[in-house]
Amino acid sequence: MLRKLFKYEFKSTARLMLMIYAIMAAVTVLGCIAMASSAMQSDDSPVREFFVILAMVSYVLGIFALFIVTYVYMCVHFYRTMYSDRGYLTHTLPVSHHSILNVKLLVSLFWMLCSILLLLLSVFALIAAASRGAVFQMDFSYFLSEFYRTSGMHFGALILYLLVAIILSCLLYLLMVFTSASIGQLFSQHKVAASVIAGVVLYFAEQIISTIIMVASGYVMLMNDISADTSAVSAVSEFSDIFTMLLTPTIIYSVILSVIYYVVCYRITKKHINLE
């Protein structure tokens, strides 16, 4: 049954997501053309500069909008298939609430990560176009050894850390919205408005709690120390420690909060479903 749920969840979301990615690819191609033409021309005519700036602004806005659309679409899709008319079908399928929630969460996470991956590829393509392919000739082994020498951290470890942090952030913000929608559906009237308000409340509560934790854990003091120390060499040499010190609590915090959101969302779906 889980396989079937995945199949239909992908099927019902793929159409719009592939359209979004096609637009993303088109915007990237336009950005690359603008960059490449700018790099090839030596004159600095105001018209060319205007065109390049316009293309870049459009590119940044376009890519940003597409990423937001991915997130918003996942949230709307969840609400529609769980708590509006289509929820009648979802909740009368002979599958457990866990399966439904897990599949929706994992498929949404998959599309979010795909969007991030495509965003990175798009930026890389732009850099490649601007450097006229010079980026491909870069000495990566030299870069890696230099990175390790100056930061005291392996580049692979940095990427792994960031990857875990990105996945957990996506998971956290998806679960936050799923929980908001689940809270909103408990109301007899104005369920969508109640979901939005619940989302805003959860977001601000989360921001307040994370600020308190940051202050309590000495993060703010650490940041002040770094700003006070003007020596770049000193800051770089501490990069590894600072990075680990910042990301580790963030990762732990995301895991704890995600678990709380998941449990709340699951309990509401199982015990307090309210498709009036």
Binding site: S12, D85, R86, Y88, L89, T92, L93, P94, V95, S96
Partner: peptide
């Protein structure tokens, strides 16, 4: 629960399909 949903066929009073 899951078992009852295997054996109950339900027609809502409004359209609920995509």
């Amino acid at each position: 629960g899951v078992e009852s949903k295997k054996h109950i066929s339900y027609l809502p009073d409004h359209t609920y399909l995509n």
